[in-house]
Write a protein that binds this DNA or RNA. Structure first.
Lengths: 337, 337
DNA sequence: CAAAGGCATACACACGTGTGCAATTGGAGT
DNA sequence: ACTCCAATTGCACACGTGTGTATGCCTTTG
C-alpha cells in the first residue's frame, strides 16, 4: 500500500496524493479531502524509510545508557527515566533508539560516529562516568546532547538534574517545623558534585536559621556501610543530634542500623531523613522519610531540551527539576525548648 | 559521502562499489580490496534508510514496556533487562526501538499497526497486564513476539521466564543442608501463576523429602503488609517453623518486621529466604538471603528467540533461565535432631 | 587463428516519497 | 472574443542503495 496505489484508485498522480497527505496548499480542498478519506479507509501508512531518505530528517532520538554502573540513579530510576523519555518523544512523533554502553569504554565506537550512522538527531546520556574517552568529543560536536546528573561543557549540551538545593531545603524545613534544631548531616564523598551541592545547601540553611553552632558533618561515601560506621563513631563520641539528614537513602539505612544496634529507637530517639526515595527505604523499618526526585519529569525535560535545540531555539543549558518530600515514619515532632 | 562518491574516486560505477562492500563474488578480489580500503579511509557509512528502502529489511527490533506497572519485575530489573536486550541486538547488528505503553490501554494504537509503521521485525513485551485488548491480536499475527513472565499463546510468540521450580529447589536445598526440616511457605495470591508455580514446587520438594507433615502455607499477596500480617497470625498460633521461604522479598521483609516486633531474632530464632533479589533485601537488616533471577540473561534470551524465529527456525516456545542463590545473613545452620 | 566461453564491469531500473517546474483548465476582466 | 492570471494537476527528477542484464575484454581451445 503506497501513495501510488492510492493515486491509481483516486485517478490522480502520486504527486497529488503526496501533497494532499502533507496538507499542501497547492491542491484543491475537495480532492484533498477525498484522498485523505481514501487513505484512511485503506489504512495507509507512509514508508518512513523512503520519506527519510528524501527529506533527510530521521525524526529519531537516541538514548545511551549504562545500566551496569554503580550509580544509584540508574539502578533505581532507570526505567522511569526511560519511560519519561520514551513517552515524551513518541508524543512528538519521534522514534527512540536505544544503545547500551559496554563497561570497557576504550574500544567502543565513538558516539558521534554511531549517531551519524543511525541518523540520530539528538541524544540523551544516562549513567555516564567521567573516564569516558568519547564523551567530550560529542559534547563539542553539532549534535544536541542532553545529559543527566553529570556535568559536561559544550555549546549544544543540556544538563538535567534534580534541584538538590531545594531538596535539602524541603527536608530541613520539615525537620524545622517538627521542632528539630540540632541536625547533623551525613554527607557524601568530596569528589561527588551532587554530595557537595547537598552539603553546601545544608550549611546555608543552618546559617540562615541561626544554627551555625549545630553544624556537624559526617563524611560518608554513599554506601550503606559508610553510613553505618560514621554513625557508630558519632554515637561513641556522645552528644547526638535530634535529627540526621543523610545525603542518600542507603547511608540513612546504615545509620538506622547502627542506631538500632545501640538500642536507640527511630524516630522516638532520633529522627532521620534520607534522600533519593529508593525502594529500599519504602520497605525498611521504619519507613524512611525522604526526598524524591522525579525521574519521569526529568526524562521528559531532557526530551524537551533536545526539541528546543532542534527547532533552533536556545533553551537554558541547565534545567533543575523540583524534588518532593515523601513523609513516612522516620521523623517525629519534638517540643521546642 | 555516498557510494557514488567512492565510485568516482575509484574510477568505477556505484554498482561495483555496492557489490564490493557487500562482498559479492561478482567483483574481482583486487578491486574489492581497493574499494574497501578507500571506503574505510573515507569513513564511509551506508545510508540505512536507502538500504532499507530497497532491501525491505529494517534490521530493527522493538520493545514495548510499561514501567508504571505495579509489577516488581519491571520496577526492580527493568534497566538490566533492557540492557540485556539492547546489547544482544546491537551485537547482531540490529537497532532497538523503544515504545512505552500508556496506562489507559483502550485508546492506544494497536501494536500490530505500530510494528508495521515502524517496520519492526520482532518485538518484546515487558510488564504486560492481562487486560490489554491489543495483546491477543499481535500474538496471533505473523510478527515474532517474545514476552516476559506473562503467559500468552500464539504461533509466533516466545515466553521467557526464570525457572521458578529450580529457584525454589535451590532455596530449599540451602535450608535442608543447613539442617532445617520444619519449613513454612509464605505464598502469593492464587491468581498469580508465578505464585502457584513456586508453591507447587515447595509442595513437591517437601513431599520428596518426607516432610509432608511440615507443609504449611501462608497465603499472602506479594505485598510487604501481607507478609507482616500472615506472620503475625502464625506467631499468635504458636509452633513456629525453623525456617520460612517467602515467594518474594517484600513479603519476606514484612515477615522479618513482624518477627522482630515480637522479639524474635533473625536468623538465630528463625531463618528466612526471600525470592527475587530486590535491592531492598540487600539493604535490609539482616541482609536477606534470596533467589536471584538473571534479568540480563533473560533479555539476551528474548532477543535470541526472535533471531531464531526471523531466520526461519523453530526455537522452543518457552525458555527458562537459571536462577541463583544469593547468600546473605538471614539463614543460619541448626543442628539436625 | 578464430570462435567460444568466462570473468569483470557498466548500464539501467527499482524501492517509496517529495518537490520544482511545466502544462492544462477555467474564469474574470477589458 | 481575446488575453491574462490564478488555480490545480501532471511530469520528471532526486534521495542512496541493490541487483538483473547487457557489454566488453581476455583467455582458452579446437
Amino acid at each position: 500500500m503506497t501513495i501510488k496505489d492510492i493515486a491509481r484508485l483516486a485517478g490522480v498522480t502520486h504527486s497529488t496524493v503526496s501533497r494532499s497527505l502533507n496538507d499542501s496548499p497547492l491542491v484543491a480542498t475537495e480532492t484533498k479531502e477525498k484522498i485523505k478519506k481514501l487513505a484512511a479507509e485503506l489504512g495507509y501508512a507512509p514508508n518512513t524509510f523512503a520519506r527519510r531518505l528524501v527529506t533527510k530528517k530521521s525524526n529519531t532520538l537516541g538514548v545511551f545508557f549504562l545500566s551496569r554502573a554503580e550509580i544509584s540513579f540508574v539502578e533505581n530510576f532507570g526505567t522511569q527515566f526511560l519511560d519519561g523519555i520514551a513517552t515524551a518523544s513518541s508524543n512528538n512523533g519521534y522514534d527512540l533508539l536505544m544503545f547500551t554502553m559496554t563497561r570497557d569504554l576504550s574500544n567502543q565506537k565513538s558516539y558521534i560516529r554511531l549517531c551519524q550512522e543511525k541518523h540520530v538527531e539528538g541524544v540523551i546520556f544516562i549513567g555516564m562516568t567521567s573516564d569516558d574517552p568519547h564523551l567530550q568529543e560529542i559534547a563539542s560536536s553539532q549534535i544536541p546532547v542532553c545529559i543527566i546528573d553529570f556535568e559536561l561543557k559544550g555549546e549544544n549540551v543540556g544538563f538535567i538534574s534534580s534541584d538538590n538545593e531545594q531538596g535539602v531545603r524541603l527536608a530541613l524545613d520539615h525537620l524545622w517545623q517538627n521542632g528539630h534544631r540540632s541536625i547533623a548531616h551525613l554527607s557524601g564523598p568530596e569528589v561527588s558534585p551532587v554530595a557537595m551541592i547537598r552539603e553546601e545547601a545544608y550549611r546555608k540553611y543552618m546559617n540562615a536559621h541561626g544554627l551555625e553552632k549545630q553544624i556537624k558533618i559526617l563524611r560518608g561515601d554513599f554506601t550503606k556501610d559508610s553510613g553505618y560506621r560514621r554513625t557508630q563513631e558519632m554515637i561513641r563520641q556522645g552528644n547526638l543530634p535530634t535529627a540526621l539528614l543523610s545525603a542518600n537513602d542507603y547511608m540513612a539505612l546504615g545509620a538506622v542500623k547502627a542506631l538500632k544496634e545501640q538500642g536507640f529507637k527511630i524516630p522516638s530517639d532520633i529522627s532521620i531523613i534520607g534522600y533519593d526515595n529508593v525502594l529500599a527505604g519504602e520497605y525498611s523499618d521504619p519507613g524512611l522519610t525522604t526526598i524524591g526526585q522525579n525521574p519521569l519529569e526529568m526524562g521528559a525535560s531532557a526530551v524537551q531540551y533536545l526539541f528546543a535545540k532542534l527547532k533552533g531555539g536556545s533553551p537554558a543549558p541547565v534545567h533543575l527539576i523540583n524534588p518532593n518530600l515523601i513523609i513516612r515514619d522516620s521523623v517525629r515532632p519534638i517540643p521546642v525548648r
